[in-house]
Computed example of a mutant assay.
Amino acid sequence: MNDYLKLTAYFGERQRDGSRFLAEAMLDLYAERAVANSVMLRGIASFGPRHIIRTDASLTLSEDPPIAIAAVDTAASIRSLIDDVVAITPRGLITLERARRYTGGLPEGDDAVQLTIYVGRRRRINGAAAFYAVCDLLHRNQFAGATVYLGVDGTASGRRRRAKFFSGNTDVPIMIIAVGTAEQARRALPELEALMNEPLVTVERVQVCKRDGELLTRPPALPAVDVHGRQLRQKLTIHTDAATHFDGAPIHRALVRKLWESHIVGGATVLRGIWGFHGDHKPHGDKLIQYGRQVPVTTIVVDTPEVIARCFDIIDEVTGRHGLVTSEMVPALLMLDGDVRQGTTDLADYEY
């Protein structure tokens, strides 16, 4: 296992760095630095510190939808470009999370893990898109869930890969996030290596708080700072389906609205997948011809441990019958809004 870092930036699609869109500038930077893998995802709902809400039920989504760009590479590579990412970001949220690249074997002791698997959009396994085979493999191994996110731009093996209309888009990145026990991962990963030639897979520690609406545990109570005074943050990831409702609205839409109305949490971002599963449900997702979208949807909330503890009651209520909820420690977070900065990119250390 090798130490890696995942740098994720959340911001509005119309944010600019001078004359260029911020997303373009950031991905140019990742290509120049030959970042191992990065993927740009367009969100469908969000709100942030300015408390402006945008959802897929509103026309304002077309004006400035949320963007998430995740980049993963060795700790040294990511640290070398953090300052440049901050310098070009006028407004947004930047997080850093520790990960381990899977190179064979898993350390003992992790009860639950999150696997992030990067594949090319048109990569085939047995004649079908690779993500179908990967999800089937994870489902057979009884993972709690997996979601496939379709990238529209990014880097793969250090090279820029953009989606184009007249192109096979073979290497445009797809990101698959899966949650399971460490034992399930130990069984599945050798099979995954047999399916794919040297796949890029990172492993992170998570805690499963809810599965299929059942409360298993609340998010762990983390301190505000580590022993060196560096701030800790916490992330909740809520996996639901676009077709499942709460009080007459899709769960993700109801959840964002309730979190926004609560004024407890500083923000939330919703990403739509194209394929996946959670619980005992079979893998499913977008089809060429269908009425309505039967796709997985992910809502992400990152804030202080105190805020996460307070907002969890809202999340628990909305996911009372449906959904997979996980918690992770985020060792570094920086919120940018012009001259206003909150947080830092210094990594905190805390064992729990």
Rank of each mutant, 00 (worst) to 15 (best):
R79A: 11
V295F: 00
A309F: 09
F312V: 13
G229V: 03
A34R: 13
I78S: 03
T269E: 04
D349K: 02
P90S: 00
A268D: 00
T95I: 15
P250F: 05
L106E: 09
V179N: 06
D111W: 02
S77N: 10
R140Q: 15
A185D: 00
H51A: 14
R98A: 04
Y102E: 01
L334H: 12
R159D: 14
D286S: 13
A254K: 08
A36S: 14
R233P: 00
L222T: 00
R91E: 14
A112G: 02
A130M: 07
P283C: 01
P220R: 06
A99F: 07
P250A: 08
G12Y: 07
R205K: 07
D56F: 05
R160N: 06
I117S: 03
L61W: 00
A45P: 06
L333S: 10
I308E: 12
L259H: 01
A182F: 11
A224C: 09
G248D: 11
K235G: 03
I274N: 09
A221V: 14
L334S: 13
D84Q: 13
I44C: 08
M40V: 09
K235Q: 15
V330S: 00
R310G: 06
G273N: 12
R253T: 15
T240H: 05
T344S: 15
A309G: 13
N141M: 06
D171L: 05
A71D: 07
Q184F: 04
M335E: 14
S80Y: 00
E198A: 04
A45S: 14
D349I: 01
D56Y: 08
Y352W: 14
T237W: 00
P65Q: 09
R33I: 12
T237K: 03
I315Q: 06
P223H: 02
H278Y: 15
V72A: 14
A309C: 11
H284V: 03
M1Y: 08
M40P: 05
A348E: 05
G92M: 01
G127T: 02
F166P: 01
T237A: 09
L200F: 15
P107H: 03
R33K: 15
R233Y: 13
R233L: 04
H263M: 06
R218V: 07
S80E: 07
L334T: 13
L7K: 09
D28H: 05
M175R: 15
H228C: 12
P190G: 14
Q290F: 09
K235E: 10
